[in-house]
Computed example of a mutant assay.
Amino acid sequence: MSLRLDAVDVLAKWDAPDDRGERLRLDYLAHLAAHRDGMLKSCRHAHVTASALIVDPVGGRVLLTLHAKVRKWLQTGGHCEPGDRTLADAALREAREESGITGLTLLAAGAPVLLDRHDTPCAVHLDVQYAALAPAGATEVISEESLDLRWFGFDALPTETDDSVRALVTRARAVR
């Protein structure tokens, strides 16, 4: 199954938690119907991306990366690549690359927890957001894409983040 077909399948089956999520789900599906390359960075107007919020429920915390270009604390994630078989694979690959943590597993039975649309310098990102469980004793390693990488308590997120990250943390707490 191609990455694009997987994304259509995931989005068609996804049960949005609210009206905003449902509108985004339908917008993403329309985008993929209109753009054969809608999963890839080559689709200049907009493209689907995948991200994962890394969660340590025992410690009551999440791992955020201080993004080098955006200069905000964000969940791990980014562009899908031609080698990604599924959206979930893309989210886990990005999480591993940006955190250095192996052995991550997706929460919510491997389904996305939220969708978020945001403008970036390269295009509009149609982000499919997952929550990933960090294994016990996980040690993070900062990547070249980040200025910093740090654990934050669920209720102690940094001020240099945005509402989408806060919504994702809230949703991840609910599904864990």
Results as ranks from 00 to 15, higher is better:
residue 111 A to Y: 00
residue 94 E to Q: 14
residue 117 R to A: 07
residue 119 D to S: 10
residue 107 L to G: 02
residue 75 Q to L: 14
residue 116 D to E: 12
residue 87 L to R: 03
residue 95 A to D: 05
residue 117 R to Q: 14
residue 128 V to S: 06
residue 96 R to L: 10
residue 75 Q to M: 15
residue 117 R to F: 00
residue 135 P to A: 05
residue 125 H to K: 14
residue 87 L to Y: 03
residue 112 P to F: 00
residue 134 A to Q: 11
residue 121 P to D: 02
residue 99 S to W: 12
residue 95 A to I: 10
residue 97 E to V: 10
residue 129 Q to N: 12
residue 104 L to V: 10
residue 82 P to M: 05
residue 124 V to N: 01
residue 82 P to T: 06
residue 88 A to R: 04
residue 75 Q to A: 15
residue 112 P to L: 00
residue 111 A to K: 09
residue 75 Q to T: 05
residue 104 L to H: 09
residue 79 H to K: 08
residue 127 D to C: 15
residue 90 A to N: 06
residue 128 V to I: 14
residue 108 A to D: 08
residue 117 R to W: 00
residue 100 G to K: 12
residue 120 T to G: 08
residue 101 I to S: 04
residue 87 L to I: 05
residue 126 L to E: 03
residue 97 E to Y: 07
residue 92 L to N: 03
residue 126 L to C: 04
residue 110 G to I: 01
residue 86 T to G: 03
residue 83 G to Q: 08
residue 129 Q to E: 11
residue 90 A to H: 08
residue 130 Y to I: 01
residue 132 A to W: 15
residue 85 R to L: 12
residue 95 A to M: 10
residue 119 D to N: 08
residue 115 L to V: 01
residue 133 L to K: 09
residue 132 A to R: 13
residue 108 A to I: 00
residue 121 P to R: 05
residue 124 V to F: 05
residue 87 L to W: 03
residue 105 T to N: 05
residue 135 P to R: 01
residue 104 L to F: 11
residue 99 S to L: 12
residue 100 G to M: 09
residue 102 T to N: 14
residue 112 P to E: 00
residue 77 G to Y: 13
residue 111 A to I: 00
residue 114 L to K: 00
residue 109 A to P: 00
residue 84 D to Y: 10
residue 122 C to P: 02
residue 102 T to V: 08
residue 105 T to H: 05
residue 77 G to D: 08
residue 126 L to Q: 07
residue 84 D to Q: 08
residue 136 A to R: 14
residue 78 G to M: 11
residue 110 G to Q: 02
residue 130 Y to P: 01
residue 94 E to N: 13
residue 134 A to D: 11
residue 97 E to I: 04
residue 96 R to I: 13
residue 81 E to Y: 04
residue 120 T to M: 10
residue 82 P to K: 08
residue 130 Y to Q: 01
residue 90 A to V: 09
residue 122 C to M: 06
residue 76 T to Q: 14
residue 98 E to D: 14
residue 129 Q to L: 15
residue 115 L to M: 02
residue 85 R to T: 12
residue 80 C to K: 05
residue 76 T to S: 15
residue 94 E to Y: 01
residue 113 V to T: 07
residue 133 L to M: 15
residue 117 R to T: 13
residue 99 S to F: 13
residue 99 S to A: 14
residue 126 L to H: 11
residue 116 D to G: 04
residue 80 C to H: 15
residue 131 A to R: 00
residue 81 E to A: 06
residue 93 R to W: 10
residue 91 A to F: 11
residue 93 R to T: 10
residue 89 D to E: 15
residue 75 Q to R: 13
residue 78 G to S: 09
residue 131 A to Q: 01
